[in-house]
């Protein structure tokens, strides 16, 4: 799970893309994603991927650390690529480039924008209940990861894991997950009481006042628009 690593880049990055407004980064991501979905031309798609790699460079995100996440969708696109490659190998390549490009777009957005800022953007058009679930999920995820690593450590120390004894291990793992859920349930009840005390009325206030758009915001949105126009307009190399 790479959520913690992604979170680290998003929160600790200090590049100009990190400093840009969340809305402008979201607009750029939507425009780049639309370009990738619309385009059927390998050269244009490779162009979009190049733009994305350039943006990673500007954002100072070590692509070699998180780039493998973009290969994950490429792996799942192989099946479709093989089917399409029967008509032409370029078509197969188009499918795989689309997969990698779309994944890189989302990676750029989440490695340069903290999740809380993204949720604040979601809150502008999403029901508050959904945004609250996003926030709770995100918070609970890290708490659960910590609890799981503690439980695994104690199971190993107490001899709860025995190689090749599948049934025994299953029982241990299920009991571990059960304990985890019970502990989490109690934690959630505590959280509910804390939220009640703090005046929670079914909506967590995370709406962030949008700041003024700067040069970098306009540049990013213009770049997205140029890429989209470049993909849509008919031209040949």
């Amino acid at each position: 799970m790479h959520l913690a690593e992604i979170d680290h880049y998003a929160l600790n990055g200090s590049s100009m893309i990190h400093k840009a407004q969340t809305a402008s980064k979201a607009v750029l991501a939507v425009l780049l994603l639309s370009s990738i979905i619309i385009s059927q031309d390998i050269y244009r798609l490779l162009g979009v991927v190049l733009v994305l790699l350039g943006l990673f460079l500007v954002a100072r995100i070590p692509i070699w650390h998180i780039g493998h996440l973009a290969l994950y969708p490429a792996f799942f696109s192989i099946f479709f690529a093989i089917l399409t490659a029967q008509q032409s190998w370029v078509n197969g390549l188009v499918i795989m480039t689309k997969a990698v490009g779309a994944a890189l777009t989302m990676l750029l957005l989440i490695t340069t924008t903290p999740y809380v800022d993204l949720f604040a953007l979601f809150s502008l058009f999403m029901p508050s209940l959904l945004v609250d679930i996003f926030l709770m999920t995100y918070r609970s995820f890290f708490i659960l990861l910590d609890k799981i690593s503690q439980l695994i450590r104690s199971i190993r120390i107490k001899g709860g894991y025995t190689p090749w004894q599948v049934i025994k291990n299953f029982r241990t793992i299920s009991a571990m997950l059960g304990t985890l859920i019970i502990q989490s349930f109690e934690m959630s009840e505590r959280m509910y009481r804390i939220y009640e005390l703090r005046g929670y009325n079914g909506k967590i206030p995370i709406r962030k006042e949008p700041g003024n758009l700067t040069k970098i915001d306009f540049t990013m949105m213009a770049l997205g628009l140029i890429v989209l126009i470049g993909v849509v307009l008919p031209w040949e190399i």
Partner: peptide
């Protein structure tokens, strides 16, 4: 939209923290 519209607000407030945990578990 239908799910949110038909939900009891008090019940939602109660189960929301556990919902986050169930979602995190599913995510893992």
């Amino acid at each position: 939209f239908l799910v949110i519209k038909r939900m009891d607000k008090e019940q939602v407030k109660r189960v929301l923290p556990f919902t986050g945990i169930a979602a995190a578990l599913m995510l893992i």
